[in-house]
Amino acid sequence: MKQIYLIILCLLSLGVSAKDAAPLADDPQTEQRLISISEEMRCLVCQNESLAGSRSDLANDLRREIRTLIKEGKSDDQIRAFMVERYGDFVLYRPPVKPITWLLWIGPFVILLIGIAGLLMYLRRRNSLIPTTALSDADNKKIDTLLRNSSVEEEGNT
């Protein structure tokens, strides 16, 4: 019975064959330019993935748009400018430093400084709430005696 299943499986697998992946562009240079441009851009859906690596429908549409612009003879800078004009500076992985994007560049450092300041304030406030008690002379003498005895025991052990 197993032999029959094996024969049927072999016969069915004859119709299945792998095909080579079709190139996305007729020209390999166009495809190379597309990849280099789209690696510098952020997928607007995924946000943490490059346009080149994303498989979302919007990323596919944007790559198709970039490919069309390349075929029209646009330069890389013109294509980037078109994408920024259409989708804003957020589409670039490294947005330019200008007043609109200052928050993107400086924001993380400001948040870090606020966190450090908050931590220091918390630690100071906590330390001020801990009561301080002064030791009497008798307590200080007991401590000195204990310290001397422990240092003598350590010297004896070594």
Rank of each mutant, 00 (worst) to 15 (best):
I4V: 02
I4S: 01
Y5A: 13
Y5C: 09
I7H: 11
L9N: 03
L11S: 10
L11E: 15
S13Q: 03
G15R: 13
G15P: 04
G15S: 08
S17T: 12
S17W: 05
D20M: 12
A22T: 11
P23S: 12
D27E: 01
E31N: 13
L34Q: 04
E39Q: 08
E40K: 06
R42M: 01
C43R: 00
V45Y: 00
Q47Y: 05
Q47C: 06
Q47G: 00
N48K: 12
N48S: 07
S50C: 05
L51A: 02
G53P: 02
S54A: 11
R55P: 14
S56R: 03
D57V: 09
R63C: 04
R64C: 14
I70K: 00
I70Y: 01
I70N: 01
K71I: 07
D77G: 02
D77W: 00
Q78Y: 15
I79E: 02
F82D: 02
V84F: 04
Y87N: 13
F90K: 06
Y93M: 07
P96N: 15
V97M: 07
K98I: 12
I100Y: 04
T101A: 00
T101Y: 00
W102C: 06
W102L: 04
W105H: 14
W105P: 02
I106G: 07
G107A: 05
P108I: 07
V110H: 04
I111F: 09
L113F: 13
G115T: 08
A117M: 15
L119M: 11
L119Y: 10
Y122S: 11
R124Y: 11
R126F: 10
S128Y: 05
T132Q: 10
T132N: 11
T133Q: 14
L135H: 07
L135Q: 10
D139I: 13
D139L: 13
K141P: 02
K141Y: 11
K142L: 09
K142H: 03
D144E: 08
R148G: 09
R148Q: 12
S151Y: 06
E153I: 03
E153K: 13
E154F: 01
E154V: 14
N157C: 08
